Amino acid sequence: MKLATVFLLSTIKFLGGPLAGSKMGLGFWPTLGLTVAGMMTSVFIISGVGRTWVLHRQQQRRLRRVPVFSKRSRNIIKVFKRFGMGGIAFLTPVLLSPIGGTVIATLLGVPRQRILLHMLWSAVLWGGVLTLASTRIGHMLHH
């Protein structure tokens, strides 16, 4: 049950995985592995159905005559233009969510394999940092 909780939390909100793993007393490596696996499961699924979803969203916007650009979408495009897919991937675990970051990358037309590659290194990087931080902070609080 502990393992499933860490995995499932990481599919939706990345930070939840390391925090839950630390709180439940899981070690560094199992928590990191489940956190990365959870995020990558979301990325894999969303990037797979993403193109169809993007076309659907574009059609819905045209029908409702909703503006394409909002303040938030302009900021995302600025990050993408300046830092590319690496920037989106870097921000995904801490500011966005695995689903949100993948949707953004898909909307911006990034090929699926590039999305998967960039999200993987980001998940490993942030998973390691957040898991280490949560286990250290948890250890300090218990002593």
Rank of each mutant, 00 (worst) to 15 (best):
M1H: 07
L3P: 12
T5Q: 11
T5N: 09
L9E: 03
L9R: 04
S10W: 00
S10Y: 00
T11A: 04
L15Q: 13
G16H: 05
P18R: 06
L19N: 12
G21A: 12
M24Y: 10
M24S: 07
L26G: 06
L26S: 10
G27K: 03
F28I: 13
T31D: 06
L32T: 08
G33D: 05
L34S: 07
A37L: 11
G38V: 04
M40L: 14
T41K: 04
V43D: 09
I45W: 00
V49P: 00
W53V: 15
H56G: 05
R61C: 12
R62W: 07
L63P: 02
R64T: 15
P67G: 07
F69K: 13
S70W: 00
S70V: 03
K71C: 02
R74F: 08
I76F: 05
K78W: 12
F80G: 05
G86L: 11
G86V: 10
G86F: 09
I88N: 00
I88R: 01
A89M: 08
L91R: 00
V94F: 10
V94A: 13
S97I: 04
P98Q: 01
I99W: 06
G100I: 03
T102W: 05
T102F: 04
V103H: 02
I104Y: 00
I104P: 00
I104M: 14
A105Y: 08
A105I: 03
T106I: 03
L108V: 03
L108Y: 07
V110P: 02
R112A: 02
Q113D: 05
I115A: 09
L116P: 01
L116H: 08
H118G: 02
W121V: 10
L125K: 07
L125D: 05
L125A: 10
W126T: 12
L130E: 01
T131R: 02
L132S: 07
S134W: 08
T135W: 03
R136H: 09
R136T: 08
R136L: 15
I137R: 07
H139A: 15
M140L: 15
H142S: 15
H143S: 09
